[in-house]
C-alpha cells in the first residue's frame, strides 16, 4: 500500500514540481543573460560601459535572486498547503479512511514532498554553478581551461584550510549529507508544525504557520548556543553543519512522532 500511496502522491504533485523546474530554467536563463552582460561590460567588450545592457544586467540579476527565493519558498508553501488540504480539510476524509496505516500516509507524503524539495534544491545549485562558470568564462574566455579552473579552486581550498584550520572534505561531506537529507527534514518539520496546529480549536492553519516559525527559531537558537563552544573559525565551520544537522534531525524525529500522534489519536476533521 505504501507504493500505491507514493504513486498517487507523486501524481498529485508532479505538475507543481515540473512548474518549479520550468521556473528554475527561466530564472537561470535570466541570470545567465545578466551575468553575461555584466561581465562583458567589465571586460570592455561593450563600447558603452554604462549602457542599457548594464541596466538590464543589474535588473535581471535582481530578478534572478528574487525568483530563486520565490521558487524555493513557493515549493515549501505548496507542499505545506497540499499536506494541509489532503490531511486536515475535506480531502482528509478520504485520506484517513483508506485502509493504510498512519505511518504509511506520513512516509509517502514525506518521501514525495522531500524528493521534490531536493530536486528543486539541486536545480538551484545547478543554476548557481552554471552562472558561476558563465561569469568565469566571460572574464577569461580563452586562457582558462576547466582543468586549470579546478586546480586553482583546489589550491584555494588548501590555503583556506591552512588559514582557518578546518577540514574541507568533512565540510563537503556534511554539505552533501545535508543536501540529501535536508529536504526531507524540512518536510517533516513543516508537516509536524501543521499537525501541531490541529491541536487547537480555532485558526488551525494559522497556528500551524506560527508553530513552524517558532520551531525554526527554536532550532536556530539551540544551534547557535551549541556552536558557541567553537574556539576557532575553522572549528565553527566544522561544527556549523554537524551541530545544525543533529539539531534538525532530533527536531524532525520529535515532529514526526507528534504528527503521527495527531493523526492517530487527535484527528478531528472539521
Amino acid at each position: 500500500m505504501l507504493g500505491k500511496l507514493i504513486k498517487h502522491e507523486w501524481k498529485s504533485m508532479y505538475k507543481m514540481g515540473c512548474l518549479m523546474l520550468g521556473a528554475m530554467a527561466i530564472v537561470t536563463f535570466l541570470g545567465w543573460l545578466s551575468f553575461r552582460s555584466l561581465f562583458r561590460a567589465m571586460n570592455g567588450d561593450t563600447l558603452d560601459p554604462f549602457g542599457w545592457m548594464d541596466i538590464f544586467g543589474g535588473f535581471t540579476m535582481m530578478i534572478y535572486v528574487m525568483l530563486l527565493v520565490c521558487v524555493s519558498a513557493g515549493t515549501i508553501i505548496y507542499i505545506g498547503v497540499h499536506f494541509y488540504r489532503t490531511m486536515y480539510t475535506d480531502e482528509g476524509y478520504l485520506t484517513h479512511t483508506l485502509p493504510v496505516t498512519g505511518h504509511q500516509i506520513l512516509i509517502s507524503k514525506i518521501l514525495v514532498s522531500g524528493l521534490w524539495t531536493m530536486i528543486v534544491l539541486l536545480t538551484i545549485y545547478a543554476s548557481f554553478i552554471l552562472l558561476a562558470l558563465s561569469a568565469i568564462f566571460s572574464l577569461e574566455p580563452i586562457d582558462i581551461s576547466f582543468a586549470e579552473l579546478m586546480d586553482g579552486l583546489g589550491r584555494l581550498v588548501v590555503e583556506m584550510e591552512a588559514m582557518l584550520d578546518f577540514d574541507a572534505m568533512r565540510l563537503l561531506a556534511s554539505w552533501i549529507l545535508i543536501t540529501l537529507a535536508g529536504p526531507f527534514i524540512t518536510t517533516v518539520t513543516l508537516f509536524g508544525a501543521i499537525s501541531l496546529g490541529q491541536l487547537v480549536s480555532r485558526g488551525r492553519l494559522l497556528m500551524g504557520v506560527l508553530f513552524y516559525v517558532a520551531i525554526m527559531v527554536a532550532k536556530q537558537l539551540v544551534t547557535i548556543m551549541l556552536k558557541g563552544f567553537a574556539s576557532s573559525a575553522g572549528m565553527y565551520l566544522n561544527m556549523n553543519f554537524n551541530v545544525g544537522f543533529i539539531v534538525d534531525l532530533f527536531a524532525a524525529a520529535v515532529l514526526y512522532a507528534l504528527s503521527y500522534f495527531v493523526i492517530s489519536r487527535k484527528l478531528n476533521l472539521i
Binding site: S12, T86, D90, E91, G92, Y93, L94, P99, V100
Partner: peptide, 21 residues
C-alpha cells in the same frame, strides 16, 4: 483500524474528492 477500513465504505456529508482530479 486498517482492517475495518478495508471493509467499511463511507460517504461523508461533504465533497471529499479533489476538484483537480
Amino acid at each position: 483500524g486498517v482492517e475495518t477500513k478495508a471493509h467499511v465504505s463511507y460517504l461523508p456529508d461533504r465533497t471529499y474528492l479533489s476538484g483537480n482530479k
